[in-house]
Amino acid sequence: MRKVIVNSTPIISLSLIDSLYILKELYGTVFIPKAVYDEVVIKGKSKIGSNNLLECEYIKILEIKNKEAEKLFKTNLHSGEVEVMILYDELNADLCILDDLLARKYAKYLNYNITGTIGVLLKAKEVGLVKNIKQLLFELIKNGIYIDRKLMKKVLELANEN
């Protein structure tokens, strides 16, 4: 079983376009640290509240064990991103789903296998879970998620939807 750690922005983004199920279909079970749960439920602008997130049996909420490592990570990253990286190490995870550019740079530096919300959507299209990624990207934008024009063009080319 692949161990996949997910940050708050991908959960919020996928929930905004009613596509959270894609995580289950692609990865089975995914893990989020407690700080991500707090960001999504308490601070997040997703469609999913506490009960709805808890009803997603494929999303497992875990406390990080190494609280000391969290102090070392305190940089320009949010606590959710820090805990995602610590949990990635603690679980010896296979994939980290992050959108924030700075967090992705840290993850790449640490040699983590990473993707983001758009990578998840591309994978979903590749395996036939979604038919039209362009519509989903426009829904993300309509819901306040920023997608760079160059990135949008490249993604649509990759998805053969240009």
Rank of each mutant, 00 (worst) to 15 (best):
G144C: 14
I133C: 02
L158M: 15
Y146L: 10
K71P: 02
V41D: 01
D38S: 10
S79L: 14
C56Y: 07
C96V: 15
I64M: 01
L102R: 14
V120F: 06
K67E: 12
E157F: 07
K150Q: 09
K24F: 04
L122M: 12
F31E: 05
I61E: 10
C56Q: 15
E90Y: 04
E55H: 10
N143V: 11
L137Y: 00
E161I: 07
R2G: 05
V84L: 12
L129Q: 09
I17F: 01
V155Y: 05
D94Q: 08
I64D: 00
G80I: 09
N66S: 14
I12P: 01
L95P: 03
E139G: 10
I42N: 12
T9H: 07
V120N: 07
A124I: 05
L91I: 06
I97G: 05
L77T: 04
I42H: 09
C96I: 15
I133H: 01
K142G: 06
I118K: 06
Y106W: 08
L136R: 03
T75V: 13
K3C: 08
L87P: 02
D99L: 06
K74L: 13
I32L: 13
N132H: 11
S46H: 01
S15Q: 05
E39C: 09
N111Y: 09
V40F: 03
V82Y: 01
H78A: 08
L95M: 11
L140C: 12
R2T: 11
I97P: 03
N66Q: 12
V130S: 06
I5A: 09
K60D: 08
I11D: 03
I97Y: 03
A93I: 05
R2Q: 11
N160L: 12
P10Y: 08
Q135Y: 08
K74F: 09
I114F: 02
Y106H: 03
F138T: 07
D100K: 13
L91D: 03
N113Q: 11
Y106Q: 00
D148M: 13
I133V: 15
M1I: 09
E83T: 06
L140P: 05
L151G: 08
K123D: 12
K134Q: 13
N76M: 11
Y109N: 14
T9L: 09
M152D: 04
